[in-house]
Nucleic acid binder design. Structure first.
Lengths: 294, 294
DNA sequence: AACGTTATGAAAGAATTATAACATTGTCAA
DNA sequence: TTGACAATGTTATAATTCTTTCATAACGTT
């Protein structure tokens, strides 16, 4: 696995095809055939295997391997890796071309995962579901936030920051507060009063999260779940879900993507009514100044 | 939530994803994870292999195979075939170019900043100062952690996670606890007892942070500061500083890089004594199992 | 023609991946 | 608790895929 992250494409045409096209003239006959085939079928290359390409190009497996190596890939696996990256990165062509100073392999790998995770988040934040999530958080009288264990703090921070962007944000913890906030109206919302709950939960999923979700829906609140890529329970309760990839090869799962997603939500909510927001910020600053916290 | 104008291939959801989504609720935990992963990464499934999916989903290869068969495919090969068909039929648009998400300019810019910030962190984590920071956190009897305002939660999470990697980690908050932890020995450490403090602080810097830092040094503790790129005060007290870029163009500064840095620290500490760590994890798991939190 | 250089595929081997059989663990109800 | 049964991982095995080595063929150069 050669350094993947420094290779994100800037050009639309996948590098692969470019590279192949450029090199064809200098190739020996058979290899050129293979190259030609690959260029033409670049899209399907992911499904091919060295052998299958060889057969279709009418040559031997060995030749395919040789070409691959000549192109600078470490065999078929390497090529697939690159294609895959082309796909992820192709959707948002970002300039990541930096020469990063020497970083060891694990680090490289982790960094790559983190970047991928980030990209995934930004994709989701540009996707069709995003707007409804933001609306759910904006057009509501009260927003509740909850999170457990290893990301509880992140959830609390989220509620703090969201408070800077809008009114009536509360962090709740079923364990601590016994859900006093929700027992008001005999299990339902007051008329005309709209609420929503943002649950942040990662593996190992908290028993509490699912229970709370059910309760939330039963009482008529909107539900937004920010979770990791393995969360299988959320879709039973809502379709406003953000899946933040967390698998990065570290001792504990990474929470970077979740944080990024939450940051984006706060931003979007703030953007939703910029004027009100800047007023809020001002008031906040003057408050903190009086408190002399800083 | 199906908007007609979206450029997204919602309708195009391939059979595969449908099928998976439908069956997830009835699946056992691990298989559900795999299923979830597959649904989320349907686009890239073509490049994956049974083993690679297993790894990324954090389960064993066998489970993947079982799921595949449960879904009606004859193993990995069968699935790939189906994908290939879907693909050629244009259902899964693996095709890079158009029809992919359009991310607006701000987003692109923010994403770019975030990535840069990440890279900066990873560079620092490979630089010369890193080792001493890790040593400071490892070779010490007690680690204190503190953080304020908008990243207080992050700091708390860090202390929770660090607790999984080593003993005697405590979150302190001068305001809340009045520093009871530190008034023991008339302002100094007991002999032979080594302690260190990790302060996490971002702009606008908390008055408390600097005071605490001074106190910390005066009493003979090591000090690590994780802060943003503007932090001006930390270098007066220590040279173990991580600067996590936070300027990203969002309404509030981004905390992604800080979180990444903290994740890396936890990992490095865990790595420092892998055996002890895995034992700790085990004990933790059995504890949580007894508590039935999950 | 003699020679070296490059191109190529065959066969053997190494590595990876998929499947099957078995063992362990966890879960739930009596 | 205990026992039955489902879930999951382990080990072993088979199948596939990739790489290496080597012998031969093709080509051009002197």
């Amino acid at each position: 696995m050669q350094d993947a992250f420094s290779k994100h494409p800037q050009v639309k045409q996948p590098r692969l095809v470019e590279k192949i096209r450029g090199i064809i003239p200098q190739l020996p006959k058979q290899e050129a055939r293979v190259a030609q085939y690959m260029a033409l079928n670049a899209k399907y290359l992911g499904f091919e295997t060295g052998a299958s390409i060889a057969k279709k190009a009418g040559t031997s497996e060995v030749t395919v391997g040789r070409l691959l190596r000549r192109l600078g890939y470490k065999g078929m696996a390497g090529l697939k890796q690159e294609i895959k990256i082309d796909h992820t990165a192709g959707t948002l062509d970002i300039n990541t071309e930096q020469d990063t100073t020497e970083i060891n392999t694990l680090m490289k790998h982790v960094l790559d995962s983190e970047i991928q995770a980030l990209m995934s988040i930004f994709e989701q934040a540009s996707g069709p579901g995003w707007a409804s999530i933001i609306q759910a958080v904006c057009n509501v009288d009260t927003v509740f936030v909850s999170g457990y264990q290893s990301i509880r703090g992140v959830a609390e921070d989220f509620s703090r920051r969201l408070s800077l962007a809008r009114d009536d944000v509360r962090f709740i913890s079923a364990h601590d507060s016994m859900l006093g906030e929700w027992i008001g109206n005999s299990g339902g919302l007051a008329d005309g009063h709209k609420e929503c709950l943002v649950i942040i939960d990662v593996v190992p999923y908290a028993r509490e999260a699912e229970v709370l979700s059910k309760l939330c829906r039963d009482q008529g609140r909107d539900l937004v779940v920010v979770s990791d890529e393995f969360c299988h329970w959320a879709s039973d309760y809502t379709d406003m879900i953000i899946h933040a990839p967390s698998k990065s090869g570290l001792f504990l799962e990474s929470t970077g993507a979740i944080v990024a997603a939450l940051n984006l939500i706060v931003h979007a909510v703030a953007e939703n009514d910029p004027q009100a927001t800047s007023q809020r910020l001002e008031r906040w600053q003057s408050m903190t100044r009086k408190l002399r916290v800083f």
